[in-house]
Write a protein that binds this DNA or RNA. Structure first.
Lengths: 213, 213
DNA sequence: TTCATTTAGGGGCAAATACCCCTTTTGTCA
DNA sequence: TGACAAAAGGGGTATTTGCCCCTAAATGAA
């Protein structure tokens, strides 16, 4: 029985080399090569010999992150399966990754035997999900989506400015709007997200990755 | 020649298992056991048979982080060397870890051969530092220390509350102080850190890890 | 073609914030 | 024991913010 070809995409070299060793110890898998980000992977794929059966994909990476990369793979290389491997535990990130087309989502905080299982299941049944992720998926059906879906593009744009030392007057000037319009955005957002003041908004924005310090 | 005993302290199991494989492939080192945080390590050390020659220590961990743990080791087990292994690239964290007593600081973004080198050097010469870290050390001598050293304990405490939806009046009440005292703290901090308003303070605090959202 | 939603804007007001000024008490250390 | 820093507190004021109210144009779907 031939072993499946696997590629690791992970920006921290030491970790990808360590995981490489782990994967090569699994009977049914062999690591072809390592990539430091999504862009590198896409470039490699130009040569058909470099297209593996499965990609083990980190999410936080420079240049091109795991979510963007997975979207591209789903589009252009639908036969390559993606198993996400990340430290991100928050719902939004996991859902984004699954929507992008990942066949499974594994936390870095798992046993190596579970990694092997997950890889086998993805290749044999097409997907692998832990109980946690399954519950999350169910939850995402009932719970009307994540709170930042409530926010319109213009409001998200405003929040970027609000996470700054600028006064609302200055923000208005930067966005070429009347100060009163800006205050309107603020009032609506406070109401939607149940916030009392700008400090609360900044913390919310950072927690929900609307703004990154 | 006998091999050195090594312990890995890292909260993500898969990573510690992967690195375990890597280290076990080095001729002069063998992994004794893995820990998920500092507390676990200290508990293990109660039995002298569990005390290794060197500890490979992550920094971001739940319960007891790498910096606290390294301080305890320096105090109570000075013969155990610590090599920090982290993704944190910011000066303050690195310096804190070195001040706590780490013999070296390695980014997770390095070659495995460099890890082996570093381990050997730490055991043979007592320390290992990359060029980057050396430059950083030199820099920390000239540059008058990091900005959060300017802040007094009481001010740091205030900042925790300021990164909240509370008004200054409420913060005063929580800290059992007069609102005027709180305003005094704020004014002093704004002056020291060249800030214009509370939003600026929140962003500063998060950037400099004074407050974690 | 209505009706609803989105986007943009305005008035007024109370509370909170930012920015100056200033004093007293408590350590603590040289 | 005097000097000096830190901690705690106060007065006054201009600006900013938060919170109501309400209007008009544009867009878009039924």
């Amino acid at each position: 029985m031939q072993s499946y070809k696997l590629v690791i995409v992970e920006d921290h070299v030491l970790l990808s080399q360590a995981i490489e060793g782990l994967v090569n110890s699994f009977a049914q898998f062999e690591v072809c090569y390592l990539c430091k980000n999504g862009k590198e992977l896409i470039t490699r794929f130009k040569d058909p010999k470099n297209i593996p059966d499965i990609v083990l994909m980190d999410i936080n990476m420079p240049i091109m992150n795991g979510i963007e990369t997975t979207k591209i793979l789903k589009d252009q290389y639908p036969n390559v399966r993606v198993l996400a491997l990340s430290v991100e535990e928050d719902e939004e990130t996991i859902l984004k990754m699954l929507r992008a087309g990942a066949k499974g989502y594994l936390l870095k905080d798992t046993e190596k035997s579970i990694l092997e299982n997950a890889l086998i299941e993805v290749m044999e049944t097409g997907f692998y999900h832990t109980k946690n992720v399954t519950n999350l998926l169910l939850g995402s059906l009932t719970k009307k989506n994540n709170p930042s879906d409530l926010l319109k593009p213009r409001e998200l744009e405003f929040i970027q400015h609000a996470c700054t030392e600028k006064t609302y007057r200055e923000i208005a000037s930067d966005m070429c709007l009347s100060p009163k319009t800006i205050e309107g955005y603020r009032d609506v957002i406070f109401d939607k997200l149940h916030l009392r003041n700008r400090t609360g908004l900044v913390i919310y924005a950072i927690k929900h990755k609307i703004f990154t310090p």
